[in-house]
């Protein structure tokens, strides 16, 4: 696997851009982590409008990385670029590289279907299909050709257990997923994403429609899942980023309304000792 430490052919991703702090101890800590997604000079355009500009950051494997910033700064656009969901917006195109496990997913001729299998997505509002709990989770595996009932049973159970929902639904798997509470529906959507065995889970404001208890369950779940998956979360809620994320990236729009990466580093530092004034103003609530 590509690591920041052994890839000496290029400057260290965490220190090569002005947006990224070059603190020695921090760089040393990050260098030991394998890179899951290496974003290099990424810009996303909607028509002529550049929504994010020249973002360069390395997302470490098996960590939770949060993307924070004011409304309209391009957080969700950046997140969606990581599994090419941005392709679904007419007129959108990308420049730069998004290198997933060493492969540039923005490269020519790349098939997006296996990418979206490897990089799952959970949205702001729980969006279970109007199907049974079982069929919601089995949907993806069936799409990828799993037909044997016993195999599907195993996938459904494993996914629901990983999403911390199994105990609550194991006796009613044939009931509609729509009948679950909001928090349960969101965990069902996480189970659905896990069922196709991705290695990265993207979450776009996954708890913003949930009550505080359901929110804490989702946050606990993120901590549990990171041992097996790389997690990237977009959140408006700075306290949530502070609670769940190992690394935090702060985005803000520039004079041309394009989102730029202002600062990126360990969450504890971003919230106690940010390097940039813009980050300080945002995390202390004096801007945004």
């Amino acid at each position: 696997m590509l690591t920041l430490a052994n890839d000496l052919s290029r400057p260290l991703p965490m220190v090569r851009t002005g947006a990224v702090p070059a603190k020695e101890e921090e760089a040393a800590e990050i260098q030991t982590l394998p890179v899951k997604i290496d974003i290099r000079g990424l810009s996303i355009f909607y028509g002529k409008f550049r929504a994010i500009a020249e973002v360069t950051m390395a997302i470490p494997a098996h960590q939770v990385t949060a993307i924070i910033g004011p409304s309209g700064c391009g957080k969700s656009t950046l997140l969606r670029a990581l599994n090419r969901m941005t392709d679904l917006t007419p007129g959108a195109h990308a420049e730069g590289d998004v290198i997933l496990d060493g492969e540039n997913i923005l490269g020519p001729g790349v098939d997006v279907v296996p990418i979206r299998q490897r990089v799952g997505m959970v949205f702001q509002r729980p969006n279970p299909f109007p199907k049974s709990i079982y069929d919601n989770v089995a949907y993806g595996p069936r799409l990828y050709g799993v037909r044997k009932r016993v195999e599907l049973d195993g996938i459904v159970e494993r996914s629901l257990k990983q999403a911390a929902l199994w105990d609550e639904v194991k006796d009613k798997l044939q009931q509609s997923g729509m009948a679950l509470s909001g928090g349960q529906q969101q965990r069902l959507c996480i189970a659905r994403a896990l069922a196709v065995e991705p290695s990265v889970i993207l979450m776009d404001e996954p708890a913003s429609a949930l009550d505080p208890i359901a929110t804490l369950k989702i946050e606990d779940l993120m901590q549990q899942l990171k041992s097996e998956y790389t997690m990237v979360i977009v959140t408006h809620n700075m306290q949530q980023a502070a609670r769940v994320a190992d690394y935090t990236a702060f985005l803000m729009i520039d004079g041309e309304r394009a989102g730029r990466l202002i600062e990126y580093g360990p969450t504890s530092r971003i919230f106690t000792k940010p390097e940039k004034k813009e980050t300080e103003d945002y995390v202390t609530g004096r801007f945004g």
Partner: peptide
């Protein structure tokens, strides 16, 4: 107040 950064320091 959930102070952060300079406020927290």
């Amino acid at each position: 107040q959930q102070p952060m950064a300079h406020d927290l320091r």
